[in-house]
Design a protein around this nucleic acid. Structure first.
Lengths: 344, 344
DNA sequence: ATCCTCCGTGTAATCGATTCCACGAGGAGG
DNA sequence: CCTCCTCGTGGAATCGATTACACGGAGGAT
């Protein structure tokens, strides 16, 4: 592969001049510039980003470590992150932690070894020493979606409290009183927050959230299935199951179906994190939608700001409730059939 | 950040010795080794991958350019690629082309600039000059899922012919005779092949595939919707719509629902590429499933083989039909309700 | 005419690793 | 005791860029 030396030789100038042309430094004669450009074209020369990075100490690359790529929410997040980064002249390297702290650590380590300019993380746990260390020693870093309390890093996230209140209001209006939640891992902020918000919203209606109605999940479909089975085995099963993420909602749907029961007639279902497929499930699932695209954009902007020496502002965007039919909502208005209300 | 020089100074040896310890070169005394290791630990030293790459001319990184991350099929592919690459000691940088040739070209270019060791591509089109050039000038490269005819690069893909035959047999047995297809872009091999396989399978039953029953899609949900509306507007609409990918099937489902029609009673639906959500849609969708994980693994193995100077074998794995209820199949055996057959 | 600036250019140092080569010490063999 | 290896080690070149510095020439001011 042609190097800058080859270009210099062919253009009859020094490598310094070639470099100046390529970085459009002002003091280059028009003549030299055209000769260099001609040589570049003839050789199909492309600067070696590795060498350039070594010298300039910047890679124009951002690292993104997410908890689970197979979750459509994170896929969309990753996509919008890449889009915004590209617009700003950066590349993105994605590391998929699969909700495993050891994998998360692996990715953080290799990203740091590659000297990425900044790191976007949606932490799976309390954070490995390596990550905490990076944050402390000044690696530009921003948390997205989830964060680690006590670590001084900007956080870009969505606030679901309002939407959870709306959801509970919706459920209450439909007559539901026994509401259960499939929680995310306690090690994650989103895992804890969603439970807290749910409990708080319940409290506003004088409803309690008994321990038996809090199932411990891990944001994966299997755990949603397992927890839901537990709920159904209770002597007094809940009337509604609220899954703290979309994958666990899917598992819950599986569990309900496996019992030969139906949503929402036998049990209602709602989920945190909306995805296109929820429109097409049987029944369509009521969910809380995060402004995922905006989250990705804002995260990149905050990170790039940090990279360039700025403060990198934290951002919190509101989520919103999207009502469908999985909680017993009457069929949509265009349907002429009479409204049938679920039991209780 | 500590460099090899700092380690050398602290251990009281030369940088050469430090490097030898780190790459466990045999001729290093036990004494020197322990001192170096101690210094590494004390300083929290991690070798600079950028510098190392410049010198060794290898990045231990693979590039993966896929057509559309938001498509669950490609997400899973990307995930398995990363898994296998990690097992082999490589990192992977994913580029999302979003079915846009210009974006694909952008990613190929930046990946090449970064001097990745090998490139995995699922081409969106016939290939940009840059990509063709890279293939010709010896950049290790492997096509996955889709490929470009006439380019001498190993191809790792899934053969769907058998599964398409099974699908047509299934449809024929259910009494369907007017079968239509939502095709993928003609610029992609998978776009063309699936139509060909479908037409061929139809031929075996003496059925034709009229032009009116071939809708041109682009592998995105919107096109599936549009094409399906066209089908429904025909004076003699098809009884079955076969979408050449999962996203277009989703669009088709939308279109059918928007008309107030039902699957499979009014029109049957099948898709290429199975995904977990198809189990939960209304109705569950009959689909052709590719062995995605194995495809990803095989692709990485072939690429790494090329990188290390081997031939890099092409691989073709069979896809298989997964029957669900979207084509009018009787309800699954465990259901006690009587079988109801769709019209025609 | 002299001096000072400014402009375009080249030489060489530098980034952080790897690795070839030379060198000195020590052991084995004659 | 001399020679020859072998082993551990360090010096220095190298990868391909960027950039500080020096230098020569042109042009303007005095």
């Amino acid at each position: 592969m042609a190097s800058i030396k080859d270009v210099a030789a062919r253009a009859g100038v020094s490598v310094a001049t070639v470099s100046r042309v390529l970085n459009d430094h002002p003091s280059v004669s028009a003549d030299a510039r055209t000769r260099v450009l001609a040589a570049v074209g003839a050789l199909g020369y492309r600067p070696n980003a590795v060498a350039r990075s070594l010298r300039t100490d910047q890679t124009r690359t951002l690292g993104l470590v997410i908890s689970d790529v197979m979750n459509p929410y994170f896929t969309e997040l990753a996509r919008s992150v890449e889009e915004e980064a590209r617009a700003l002249g950066y590349s993105v390297i994605i590391g998929n932690a699969d909700e495993r702290p050891d994998l998360q650590d692996h990715h953080v380590t290799t990203l740091l070894d590659r000297r990425i300019d900044g790191l976007l993380v949606s932490p799976t746990d309390g954070g490995s020493p390596r990550m905490l260390d990076a944050a402390r020693t000044g690696t530009p870093m921003v948390f997205v979606d989830r964060w680690i309390p006590g670590v001084d890093v900007p956080v870009v996230r969505s606030d679901g409290r309002g939407a959870v209140r709306d959801l509970v209001a919706h459920l209450h209006a439909l007559g539901h009183r026994r509401l259960a939640i499939i929680a995310g891992p306690a090690a994650t902020t989103t895992g804890r927050e969603r439970v807290d918000a749910f409990r708080e919203a319940l409290g506003a209606y004088g409803l309690a959230l008994p321990d038996a109605y809090i199932g411990q999940g891990d944001f994966q479909a299997d755990s949603g299935r397992r927890v839901t089975e537990g709920f159904l085995d209770l002597t007094e099963p809940p009337e509604v199951v609220f899954a703290a993420d979309n994958l666990m909602a899917l598992g819950a749907l599986d569990a309900v179906r496996a019992r030969g029961l139906r949503v929402p007639d036998d049990i209602a279902l709602a989920a945190f994190d909306d995805i296109p497929w929820f429109v097409h499930t049987d029944p369509p699932v009521t969910a809380i939608a995060q402004p995922t695209r905006e989250l990705g954009r804002a995260a990149v902007r905050a990170l790039v700001d940090r990279v360039e020496g700025g403060p990198g502002e934290s951002v919190s965007l509101p989520a919103r409730l999207v009502v469908r039919r999985s909680c017993g909502e009457p069929a949509p208005p265009q349907s002429p059939s009479p409204v049938r209300r679920s039991t209780s």
